[in-house]
């Protein structure tokens, strides 16, 4: 029998009020072990108050080759920004 421990992605909330952020990855046999290993590998100095782990194979990532088609369309939509709209100087607080 030879089965390698799968890869997990680790997300850590550094303090309440902040979102979980990707910290890195590690290998573990199951989710429980992944959490314990994440505690030891990524939070030895109080870096976190909460950890999420997810097996890497469950993450679907966009392909940088598709970046044009995915992200270019947002570039010419200047009307999504407040500076696009001209208001007279007398208008305050808007």
């Amino acid at each position: 029998m030879k089965k390698n421990w799968p890869l997990w992605e680790v997300f850590v909330r550094s303090k309440n009020g902040l979102e979980h952020r990707h910290f890195g990855s590690l290998h573990a046999a199951d989710a429980e072990m992944a959490l314990e290993n994440a505690r030891d590998v990524y939070t030895r100095r109080n870096e976190g108050v909460s950890i999420w782990v997810v097996e890497s194979k469950y993450i679907t990532a966009s392909n940088p080759a598709d970046n044009g088609e995915l992200f270019e369309p947002a570039k010419d939509k200047v009307y999504r920004h407040p500076t696009f709209y001209n208001l007279p100087d007398e208008v305050k607080h808007m």
Binding site: M1, K2, K3, N4, W5, A29, D30, M33
Partner: peptide, 13 residues
Amino acid sequence: VRDAAMAYAEKQQ
């Protein structure tokens, strides 16, 4: 140890 942990994980699953 690695094999046993894997076998345990599979069994739990």
